[in-house]
Design a protein around this nucleic acid. Structure first.
Length: 114
RNA sequence: AAAGUAAAUUGAGUAGUCGCUGAUGAUACUCGAAAGGGUACAUGAGAGGAAAGUCCGGGCUCCAUAGAGCAAAGAUACUUGAUAACGUCAAGCGAGGGUGACCUCAGGGAAAGUGCAACAGAAAAUAACAACCAUAAAUAUUAUGGUUCAGGUGAAAAGGUGAGGUAAAAGCUCACCAGCAUUGCAGUGAUGCAGUGGCUGUGUAAACCCUAUCUGGAGCAACACCUUAAAUGAAAAUAAAAGUGCUCGUCUUUUAUUUAAUAGAUUUUAUGAGUGGCUUGAAAUAUAUAGCAAUAUAUAUUCUAGAUAAAUGACUAUUCGCGACAGAACCCGGCUUAUAGAUUUACUUUAACU
């Protein structure tokens, strides 16, 4: 992920939750907000209630992998905060589902380069 | 061969493409006065048997010292050994279970004291309802004395079974068994075996309690360093107060008073970011020696995750038995709980054959 920074600070997460625009997806939801830099920022948030450590790790890996493959097609200068839909069991997630859903959801926000 | 018992190992493999986190570098480019940093590339490494629960025991850090005594609270409880230590482990003892291999155990003290023992029953620990026997009265019974065998109740009924004995009976006497005390022998010891004695004293300590041993508290979000901001203003003596439940001893801090000194440092708190702590250790593997074993000692070899919104993945192909429980977070030794399947070793019983 050459042009992307992973969000690490707690206040950045809070900021995105409160001020980002919410986009609904079948498997994942995304909060999106513009930032002033030339980079994209991405954060992944999964609560402890949604699964055990192994499941949460797997979900993060799938999302990170999907984002990596989509990175070239996304416009720069935005922050993303990705959340798993609470109605979906993490065991049912696959790479193909996550990637298609992420592409659709980001397309709703008109941030895909076509 | 079937059924079982115990112990140990393993926890999908291979190839390709893209990617993640540390480490190393006489490499290339780049920032910088330098120290050093960044990017690329190359090399090699990268989750578990439970990483989990956070239930015990240690290391390490801070709480002034981690010192002594007392109190309180908690933990442990057959013996000997192992260990840094343990509530863990090993080998034994005792009790119970299983045809057996083997398994299970809140396994100190009830003769220090207090409490409790529902219902039933005459009576639940100063026992006497009904019954049996003797004597007297007088006669469908009553009174006094002896006895506690047989009866029913109950988780438990005042040692058990049998014989003698008696008016009727009873450890009243005897034999065997059980329990208690004591002596001898064997064993380091728990304990076992044998003898002797008197003839008994219920259960409950997963009720209080007693005895012995052990335990100061909080935790890596510990703690140390750096930057920024704000506040304060140094030393000595005396007194008071404070510093973990209490007391004592030493030490420290704060406040007040007095005295001395006169300028470049000191201290505390809060906020924010980062670095260290952080992985060479009661380490792993192999061999030898000692020991029944847990384990110890010696020698040789090896370095084997170190993240911090948190690194092991995705896709494709392929093989099989079609993949369970599950993700390091300061580090070790255990315990407990979860776990698809596969493999190995030793042993037991039953059946068949030789």
């Amino acid at each position: 992920m050459k042009n992307t920074i992973i969000i690490k600070k707690n206040y950045e997460f809070k900021n995105l939750f409160s001020k980002g625009k919410f986009y609904y997806g079948e498997y994942i939801h995304i909060y999106i907000k513009e930032n002033t830099s030339n980079y994209n920022k991405i954060g992944i948030a999964i609560s402890g209630k949604q699964g055990k450590a192994v499941d949460r790790n797997r979900a993060k890996r799938l999302i990170r992998e999907a984002y990596k493959n989509l990175e070239e097609h996304i416009k720069k200068g935005n922050s993303f905060l990705i959340i798993i839909n609470k109605d979906v069991k993490i065991e049912e997630l696959t790479y193909n589902n996550v990637e298609k859903n992420m592409r659709k959801t980001i397309d709703k926000a008109n941030l895909l380069i076509k």
